[in-house]
Amino acid sequence: MSLSENHLLDRNLGNSHLGQSNPLESVALSLGYEKKTIIKSMDLAIEPNQITVLVGGNGCGKSTLLKSFARLLKPSAGQILLNGADIHSLSGKEVARKLAILPQGPVAPEGLTVEQLVRQGRYPHQNWLQSWTEDDERLVRKALQDTNMTEFTHRSIDALSGGQRQRAWIAMALAQDTDILLLDEPTTYLDLTHQIEILDLLFELNMTHQTTILMVLHDLNLAARYAHKMIAIKDGAVFCQGAPEAILDHDMVKSVFDMECHISADPLFGTPMCIPYGKGRKVKSQAAEHV
């Protein structure tokens, strides 16, 4: 089987979703800061009710792409379609009622409590006179419950552990009550326990509420475990996309990350697992290595 053909096929499959009821799409999207182009004429569709994970090396443009999907960046050419409408033709509040974004490493003002933070998520649903309705109250309680943060409601954000803090931010995004959730590296700076905790939380959210989730993750193995669909970005373009078990192989890792690796099945989940080559101690006999 030719790998490049395989990738081409996947890319065409991705394109064929255009025009259907995909919640988020980019059409001939180009992004850049000043003179530097980061994303070049990209067509991409994010499918509904799925977890989609963007992977790629540092500086490949995946975070930039995520930001543009949240209307945080204006495209230099092309469009982002949110439920079929140009995202820049909608008002900020209109977008915020349909799509929530959690940027990387957010910082809360000193002394802000979990509840005060989560309440901010209701901003796009409020107006000057209706600043706090029962609906708002209910959705904030629910967001706190869904993230297991109820017991920390009145705690100051500064006093929380990294995992709890990230859960508080996710609760804020949940309070926004949107069908689409975008997250930029939600597990950065968290220890393994908390990484799993956050990803489990997002997975459950997708299962119970069918929330469409698009996120950037650095850990390929976790990405493969949680993503329905993986999109690999290289040099500002989609290198390949599809179910992790279909696309995550030696050649893909070699091309996207410029790294030699061995792909094996996760003994617990069966999803593909990338084991990088490199230096390091070997405690295994040479013979067993090539099994």
Partner: peptide, 19 residues
């Protein structure tokens, strides 16, 4: 209320619908 929200940072505030 806008002021409260923009204190969360530019990206979050924009994401919540503030110019």
């Amino acid at each position: 209320r806008r002021v409260n929200t923009q204190e969360l940072g530019d990206q979050l505030a924009t994401g919540l619908g503030i110019s």
